[in-house]
Every structure is written in C-alpha cells, then in structure tokens.
Design a protein around this nucleic acid. Structure first.
Length: 873
RNA sequence: GCCCCCUUGGCGGAAUGGUAGACGCAAGGGACUUAAAAUCCCUCGGCCUUUGGCCGUGCCGGUUCGAGUCCGGCAGGGGGCACCA
C-alpha cells in the first residue's frame, strides 16, 4: 500500500500547539499524585541554542515524559542563567544595553527550544536577571547576613589597571589581562564572602548519602573540600635570631611523625614573621616581592622552581633544646592554608627534598619500608612517602608512622610553652570561603549601604529590590555602578544621613545556586514557598555537564543548607540524582594554516569519500579543507549545528532520536549527517509500519491469535519491559536499540496480521500501540501522529504507560549453551527452570557432547539454571 | 607530581562472572525501477583444509568449571586538581 511520507514540518508544530493548548506540561503544586522533579542545568543566553544543549534537554525530556506516563506529577521547568560578562562585553562592543542583549537572546533561544518539542512547564520560566528573581536573591542575602553566613574581609584580587576591573584567574594570561593585555596587579580589596566553610565537614560527610551521583563527581568534591588531620605545633624561636617581639613560629603538619627528619622551616612571603624580618633586610624584602608577583599566574606556578631565602632566624626543636633549624621564606608555601608555615622534612616530602637538595640542607630518612635496613636506607632524589617503620627518630624508632603520629601529638599536647600546650590536633580543610564580590554591572546588586556613622547596613527588606539602574554607559572603563551620577547616593536606613550603596554585584554562581528551589514556586513573594520547596525538592534527576562537577554543585549544596538555616526550606541536599551528560562533538574543517587558517562550518563544505579517502571541499571555492578532529562544538571553530538546521529538514524527532542513539548518554556523541539520515529513515519506517496496517486493524481480544501473532505480542511485551527499565536507568542508547529490534521483529508480522483474523488484528494493534508508546518519550510528535492513526482519541502524551503481561515475557523453554572445558560446543533446549539433574542428562545425551567426549566420562558437570552448562572432561 | 576514568569489528557501541560483537552507521552484493531516490533481501572480526575448526575484547600474569567483566603489574588515551604541608 502506498503511504504518504511522514512530514515533520507539518506534524511537529501541530502537536506542539495541541500540547500547549491542553496545558499538558503545566504542573500544579496541589496535584496529589507522587511528585517527580526533573531538571536540566539551565542555559546561559549566549545568543543561540546549539545541538549540544538540546541533547541535554532531550534526555531530561525523555525522563519527564516517561515519568508523566507512569503517573507522576512531573515538574520540568526551564529558565535562563542570564547575568554575566558576555552581556557587558556585547554592550561595550555593540553599544547595546546588556539587558536588551540578554532578553533578545532569550527570545531567540526560547523559540529554538520550542522547536524541539520539549515537555516544559513554560509558565514557570524566569531569567536570573529578572528583577523579580534578583529581588528574592537579595532577600536571601539579607537573611544570610543576619545568620552570619555572609561577611566581609580583605582579599587579594587580580586587578587590571587599564580596564579598571577585577579579573578571574582564567582571565589572566601570562600575568596579563586577557582583554587589555596590561600587567595584572594584585590588589587587596574588601570583599563579600559566603561562609561555606561553616559546612565543610557536613558537605564532606553528606557526599556519602548521594548514592545516585556519579562516583567521579563525589571524588572531585571530596578532593576539593580536602580534609586533612594534623597537628598545629609551635616552635620556639632561638633568642637573638628573632625579630623584636617574636618568640614562636606556629606550623601545621599532617606528618608530626616525621619531626626528627625536620631540617628547616619554611614560611610564606606574606607571613607576618617574613614581613617583619624583611623590614630590616632589603634582599629578603625583594625576594618576598618576587614571590608575590609569581602568585598571579597559574602557568608560572606550574613550572616554578622551589626557591627560598634564609631569614637568619632559627627555631629550637621541640624534643631537643640543643637542636636548632633555619627559617626560610619559600615560594611554595601558601599563606592562606594552615598557618602559612611548615617544617620541612626532606626525606618524606618531594618538595621539601627538592628544596633541601638545592640549599644543601640535611636529609635524614625517618621512615623506611618495613623490610628495609636502617643502617643503609637512604633518600637522595626521591622522597619516601609510603607506610613503613620509623628510624633515626629516637623514641619513635620501630613504630609505624601512625603510632608515631599519635605519640608525638600526645607528648606535645601535654608539653607546655608559655603556659599553653605546645601543640593541638587540628582538622584542616582546603575549602575556602566563597568570595562573591564582582566589580561589574550586569549582576545582582549586593543589597547593603555603607554609612560613615553606622558602618555596613543591610538594605531593609521593605526597600528591596535594589534595582540596577538602566541609564548606564560603558564608554569608560571600570564598573558603571561605581561612577553612576546618582545611583550610589542613598540615605542611611538607620540614621538617615547621606550614605553610599555597595557597588559590587554578586558572582553569577550565586544566581544558579538556588534557581531549582525558585522553580517550585516561581511567583512566591518570598524567595521560596517552603511547603512547595519541601514537597518538590530534592530534584529527583538533575542533568548537566561535568564542567559543573565542583563549583556549581558545591555552591548549590551550600545554598540549600544556608536556606535551611534561614527557614526557606528544610533539607540539605538539593539534588538526589545527578547525571553528567557527554557533549555533542563534530569534526572541524579548516583551510590554510597558522594565522591565515580559516574554519568552515559543516554547511559550507561538501564531503566526498569516493576512492576510500574522505575529503572535504569548500563549496564556495572548491578548495580542499583539512578534516580535523572531533571537538566540542564552538563558535570559533564553526563546527556548530543549530537545531533549526535539523528541524527544517528532518524534524525535531529525528534530532532527538539520533542524539540519544548509539552513544551512551554520559559519553560524547559525534554529530554526523549520515547518522541523522539513519535516524530519519527509522522515523519514516515506523510511520510506514504503523500506517500501513492501521486502517485494517483494531483493538480487541488477542487471546486466540496464531503463533506468529503470539510471537509478535511477546516481542512487544518483552521490549516494553526492557525499555521501561532502560529509561529508568537513563540507558537511552539501549532503549533505542530495543525499539529497533522490536520493529525488526514485528514489521513483517504486522502486515500479515492486518489480513488475518480479528485476534491477529488485535495482536497487531496491541503491538503497534506498545511500539508507539515506547517511542513517545523520545519522538513525541511522530508518536502522536501514529497514535492518532491507530484510532486513539486522547493524545499519547496524556496516556498512561502500558503494563507488560508477565505471562508474555517468559518462555516455557530455554536454549542453553553447552560448553566443554569452557568452550561452547553446541546448545540444548530444555524446559524453563528444569532441575539440574535433568539438564545434565539432556546435555550428556546431546550428539555433539558424545562426539566431543569420545566415550570418556566427564569429571564434572556444572549446571547454571537457565544460563549455561559446562562439562569438565 | 597526585587523584579518577577509559581501551571490544572499518566506526559508535551491546553483553547480572555464563553463547563476545545486540542495535545502529559505513561498506559490498542482489531484487524492484527506463533510470534515480525510496524500499526490500543477503554478506559483513581474523585465519584455515569452510555442514567443521582455530584464534580473537590494549599487553603480561593470576583467581575460577568458566574472565570483556574480578585481582596484580605494564602500556596507551582522556579527565580533574595544582606546590594544601
């Protein structure tokens, strides 16, 4: 029968409209059904959606549609991470207001997303730059301030003197500003910090409960938090060598067991003792200055050689008053970790060893392998950092390092110095408080006022929001808020005298640290409706890129805790399930080389693989382009594909199907036209199979169907079971393979059934209905069109997920492979769940077994029920 | 340097310790067609003496009746962290 080809350009807008009019995806908080919250990391409105975004959203959409069919009340919202620098850059380059640029982009991107047919509750949409949103963020800030979860302190920043702006570390390239090229200075500014370290231990411990997170992400967070147990230990300065008024040096160590291997002390250039010593020593002062300068660039840090400067100060060993050690200022000691001072044990630490070898300091091995020889064990080029046994360490000799740690810690805790214990055990974290001040315009204003009389005063909630002024100019460098003629000036809320607004805005990571909570009640007057937040949260399935494995997720975990302390919700962990998806990559095409090199978009080249070699030819010029490696889609390499390019030709369903097939969702997928063509062929195939039979089949009792029809029903029910499991585990590629398999199995039978008995027709109708429901989460438009062809009146998007019949997914007999000595020699067919003895008898009676055994009797027969038989000859 | 992950046909990838290569892409052959597209059918890891057999999941070893899967070592590739004492 001749059938019309399926036309996505007609069908897709039609169904999108139908869903929208039926408000199928708008979620009511009062819906009594069990709740399921699926969320994809919201996009930055950079200008255009590319196909990589849509893979992420498609995954979430499959989960959302599947859960909805399973009877859940599903929350699946979308919004925009809309503050940030690109808008300001655009403002400077194109003289367009950052707000206009952002909202224009959002409009474009929303339309692009809508083409994909995502089942999103658009009624909850917001952008973080909406006054309504940042208003509530300011309320949170004020609440945090009250609970001492926000504070101000001096902190170093990278300052670009030409652009008069603060730079993030990644904007500093070779010590210069990425835009201006000016030498970056380190400046001390008073900045706002969130007290994330208050929760260090909890953020670490609680990782254990996040069993639905990738292990990789948990490891990364654990390392980032960086807990260590050690000893804070005070060393007495040798009288006569110390600067005026200094009598001790406190260090932090995780290896107190190696204290007899100490051969020097090293302190940071910014350490108070270093500053004091430098005051009377110009050479030392110069060295300290050099250390500070090197702090700016990551690249320099990586290659930096260990360098030190002997201050002339000496300390006395805590266990031997006659043993004194030199104090160096060293470039590898950080002021803001521990106490900014260490003791160096060269034999047990590679950095210390490098340092000692450079400055001719002693290297005393104090730990050796358990089977080593203390008399000959030496450390020269490589420090010994493993477990073992203590040597050269007086009363510690023979102990394990762990026992020695305990011994040293207990003795020094008991020892007194200046009336206080000489040492204290201390847990130290690598995690630092989160600096959120940004000297920029396009961000959430920090709602405080600086008054000469009253100090720092939070803006009263009644006076919120502090709105960004619209009349700004980007003609001059620096923060437009700072030089705005009137915006800064305000009366102090406490005393009424003239005061100044804070001109810093918040890090955009703040915006994304609680948007998931706002989605649960996006119109609430308060930041959240605690009832809605508690009912919806945690997000059941969060989906996003691995690039946010640390900061965004950690900040969100902090925010959830901070919002609990301020009574905005009542939970600690915002994301129950986390999935990190791979990227969509595409090969690149390039002509010329070096500075003259030029990238070409996929649409600009023609591919040709005749003669066994793939070649790319630039259509406009006929020039041959070099085919480059698979890379993340990026504007600069022009290897991006927009959703429209696909929807205009093949339709959204094809794109959705293709992006989820083949590659597992956590790996990268290569976008290729051939793959997309293949997916589109399958779309058409389903349409043909369904509509070819639809007119001649009808629902009914399939109980009397013939063997072929029964096989078709079994195939459908087995696929239903498997695909449901796969969707739940986000195994989209496997689910898609199963659907292919199902179509391969039933396509021939369906045609025959359409000309068969009523039972056969019912069987075909049932199998096709299941098929359509299985594809519906991935190809929702095609599914609706097919569903209608099958005679249903309700849409498939509002139809419950079918339930498989257990009787149809099990077989009476099972084919067992038979191995002889672990090699497969044949197979036997036995009754399902047959007892081991009868299986063994059948196996031994099989021709091929008798042949292979050659009359010998087997030594052993292993029968794994319903799995395999292995005969050991 | 430290930590983590990965390695299976021409390609993407399947495979609760139990028939390796499901499914798809690409390729080759055939049918239909005036022709093309579309569609349908067949072949598709390697080797051999081809109704059968041998080898085969980066490499070397181990555990096991049985290893792609578990353990130890090595190699290659990727990712994260950045001197954290």
């Amino acid at each position: 029968m001749a059938t019309e080809r399926y036309n996505p350009r007609e069908a897709e807008p039609k169904w999108q409209k139908a869903w929208s009019e039926a408000k199928l995806f708008e979620t009511d908080n009062s819906d009594p059904r069990p709740k399921y919250y699926v969320l994809e990391m919201f996009p930055y409105p950079s200008g255009r959606i590319h196909i990589g975004h849509t893979r992420n959203y498609t995954m979430g959409d499959v989960v959302a549609r599947h859960r909805r069919a399973l009877g859940y009340s599903v929350l699946h919202p979308m919004g925009w991470d809309a503050f940030g620098m690109p808008a300001e850059n655009a403002a400077m380059q194109n003289k367009v207001h950052p707000g206009k640029w952002t909202y224009d982009n959002i409009d474009t991107m929303r339309e692009q997303l809508k083409l994909m047919g995502l089942s999103i509750d658009w009624s909850r949409e917001f952008a973080t730059c909406d006054v309504d949103y940042y208003h509530r963020q300011q309320m949170l800030f004020v609440d945090f301030l009250e609970k001492d979860l926000v504070y101000r302190k001096q902190s170093k920043v990278n300052w670009d003197p030409e652009d008069m702006t603060v730079l993030a570390n990644e904007q500093v390239i070779d010590g210069r500003g990425w835009r201006s090229g000016a030498l970056v200075e380190q400046r001390e500014l008073t900045q706002w910090f969130f007290r994330i370290t208050k929760f260090s231990q909890d953020l670490l411990d609680s990782l254990e409960t996040l069993t639905e997170w990738p292990e990789k992400v948990r490891v990364m967070q654990r390392n980032w938090i960086g807990r260590s147990e050690g000893l804070q230990l005070r060393w007495e300065l040798l009288a006569g060598t110390a600067p005026e008024g200094e009598s001790e040096l406190e260090v932090y160590t995780t290896r107190p067991d190696t204290i007899f291997g100490a051969s020097f002390m090293a302190i940071a250039a910014d350490h108070p003792l270093a500053k004091k010593a430098a005051a009377s020593n110009p050479d030392l002062a110069a060295f300290c200055e050099e250390c500070r300068r090197h702090g700016t660039s990551v690249a320099e840090l990586e290659t930096a050689e260990k360098k030190g400067f002997d201050t002339g100060i000496r300390v006395v060993h805590p266990f031997d008053p006659d043993w004194t050690l030199p104090v160096y200022v060293a470039n590898f000691v950080l002021m803001d970790y521990g106490t900014g001072a260490i003791f160096g044990c060269p034999s047990g630490d590679q950095r210390d060893l490098d340092f000692a070898n450079k400055y001719g300091l002693p290297v005393i091995p104090v730990v050796m392998p358990a089977d080593g020889d203390a008399a000959t064990f030496q450390v020269t080029e490589e420090a010994y950092v493993d477990d073992g046994v203590m040597i050269n360490s007086r009363f510690l000799d023979g102990m394990t390092p762990d026992a020695a740690f305990e011994e040293v810690a207990s003795r020094l805790e008991a020892a007194s110095m200046d009336g206080r214990p000489q040492a204290a055990r201390k847990v130290q974290f690598r995690l630092r408080d989160w600096g959120i001040s940004r000297q920029r315009y396009w961000g959430c204003p920090i709602p405080v006022i600086h008054c000469e009389e009253c100090g720092v005063v939070p803006v009263p909630k009644a006076d919120l929001p502090v709105k960004l002024p619209d009349d700004i100019d980007f003609e001059k460098p620096g923060n437009p808020l700072d030089r705005h003629p009137t915006w800064r000036n305000v009366a102090c809320p406490t005393c009424g005298k003239p005061a100044k607004r804070e001109t810093d805005t918040m890090d955009t990571f703040v915006d994304s640290s609680w948007y998931f909570a706002r989605f649960t009640a996006p119109k609430a007057d308060d930041p959240t409706d605690p009832k809605a937040a508690n009912e919806w949260l945690p997000v059941d399935q969060y989906i996003g890129g691995i690039e946010h494995a640390i900061l965004h997720l950690l900040y969100s975990r902090f925010f959830t805790r901070a919002m609990r302390e301020t009574d905005h919700l009542d939970l600690a962990e915002p994301f129950k399930g986390l999935f990190t998806q791979g990227m969509v990559v595409h090969e690149t095409y390039r002509t010329g080389s070096g500075a003259k090199g030029q990238w070409h978009a996929p649409s600009e080249v023609r591919l040709d693989d005749s003669g066994g070699k793939r070649r790319a030819v630039v259509i406009a010029t006929g020039e041959e382009a070099e085919i480059g490696s698979l890379e993340k889609m990026s504007k600069s390499k022009k290897n991006t594909i927009g959703p429209e390019e696909i929807t205009q030709s093949y339709g959204a369903d094809t794109a959705r199907w293709f992006m989820l097939s083949d590659s597992p969702p956590d790996r990268d997928v290569e976008w290729s036209d051939r793959g997309a063509e293949g997916a589109h062929r399958f779309v058409q195939r389903i349409w043909r199979v369904v509509t070819g039979a639809a007119a001649n089949i009808a629902p009914g009792d399939a109980g009397d169907a013939g063997d072929e029809s029964l096989a078709m029903r079994k195939a459908a029910h087995k696929a239903l079971k498997a695909v449901g499991d796969d969707f739940e585990k986000l195994g989209f590629n496997r689910a898609i393979a199963r659907v292919h398999e199902l179509v391969n199995q039933i396509a021939p039978t369906v045609e025959k059934a359409a000309a068969g008995s009523d039972s056969d027709k019912a069987a075909a109708h049932e199998a096709l209905s299941i098929l359509v429901q299985l594809i519906a989460p991935v190809m929702p438009h095609l599914a609706e069109e097919c569903w209608q062809a099958l005679g249903y009146e309700k849409m498939v998007a509002e139809t419950a997920w079918p339930v498989f019949d257990p009787a149809l997914v099990t077989e009476d007999t099972v084919t067992l492979p038979v191995q002889i000595n672990g090699k497969r020699r044949g197979e036997i067919i036995v009754a399902k769940d047959a007892d081991k003895d009868s299986v063994e008898r059948s196996a031994l009676a099989a021709d091929f077994v008798i042949h292979h055994l050659g009359g010998a009797s087997p030594k052993k027969v292993i029968v794994v029920p319903n799995r395999i038989v292995n005969i050991v000859a």
